[in-house]
Amino acid sequence: MPRGSHHDETGLLLEDHGPLSLSRDAGGTWRLDVSPSAKRMVGCRVRVIGARADFDLLDVSQIKAVQPSDG
């Protein structure tokens, strides 16, 4: 996947001593470059839209909580 590639992912929002990360429904993890206000959703299932900024880093343009059936 090249840098700048667009991604629309769903999964569990996690915080591990600093940066937030997304544990993807499809497997794997992204580190997230996201607004600090997203911390209110830690532990929730979320949809993240953004662009790849580095090997495992997404520059998030949109994040929102979703219900389990929203996919």
Results as ranks from 00 to 15, higher is better:
Pro2Tyr: 09
Arg3Thr: 07
Ser5Ala: 15
Ser5Ile: 10
His6Val: 12
His7Gly: 08
Asp8Cys: 08
Thr10Val: 15
Thr10Asn: 14
Gly11Tyr: 03
Gly11Gln: 04
Leu12Val: 11
Leu12Gly: 04
Leu12Ile: 13
Leu13Gly: 07
Leu13Pro: 04
Leu13Arg: 05
Leu14Arg: 13
Leu14Lys: 13
Glu15Phe: 04
Glu15Trp: 07
Asp16Ala: 11
His17Leu: 13
His17Glu: 14
Gly18Gln: 08
Gly18His: 13
Gly18Leu: 07
Gly18Ala: 10
Gly18Pro: 07
Pro19Asp: 15
Pro19Asn: 14
Pro19Val: 10
Leu20Met: 15
Leu20Phe: 11
Leu20Ile: 13
Ser21Asp: 01
Ser21Asn: 02
Ser21Glu: 09
Ser23Trp: 08
Ser23Arg: 14
Arg24Asn: 10
Asp25Glu: 15
Asp25His: 13
Ala26Ile: 10
Gly28Gln: 12
Gly28Thr: 13
Gly28Glu: 12
Thr29Lys: 06
Trp30Cys: 02
Trp30Gln: 01
Trp30Met: 04
Arg31Phe: 08
Leu32His: 11
Asp33Tyr: 03
Asp33Leu: 13
Val34Lys: 02
Val34Tyr: 03
Ser35Arg: 10
Ser37Arg: 15
Ala38Asn: 06
Lys39Asp: 08
Lys39Tyr: 06
Lys39Pro: 00
Met41Phe: 14
Val42Arg: 00
Gly43Lys: 01
Gly43Met: 01
Cys44Arg: 13
Cys44Phe: 00
Arg47Cys: 00
Val48Tyr: 01
Val48Cys: 02
Ile49Tyr: 00
Gly50Leu: 04
Gly50Trp: 03
Ala51Thr: 13
Ala51Glu: 09
Ala51Pro: 00
Arg52Asn: 08
Ala53Asp: 06
Phe55Ser: 04
Asp56Thr: 04
Asp59Glu: 12
Asp59Phe: 03
Asp59Leu: 07
Val60Tyr: 02
Ser61Phe: 06
Ser61Asn: 06
Ser61His: 11
Ile63Thr: 02
Ala65Val: 10
Ala65Lys: 05
Val66Arg: 03
Gln67Lys: 12
Gln67Glu: 11
Pro68Thr: 05
Ser69Met: 01
Gly71Val: 04
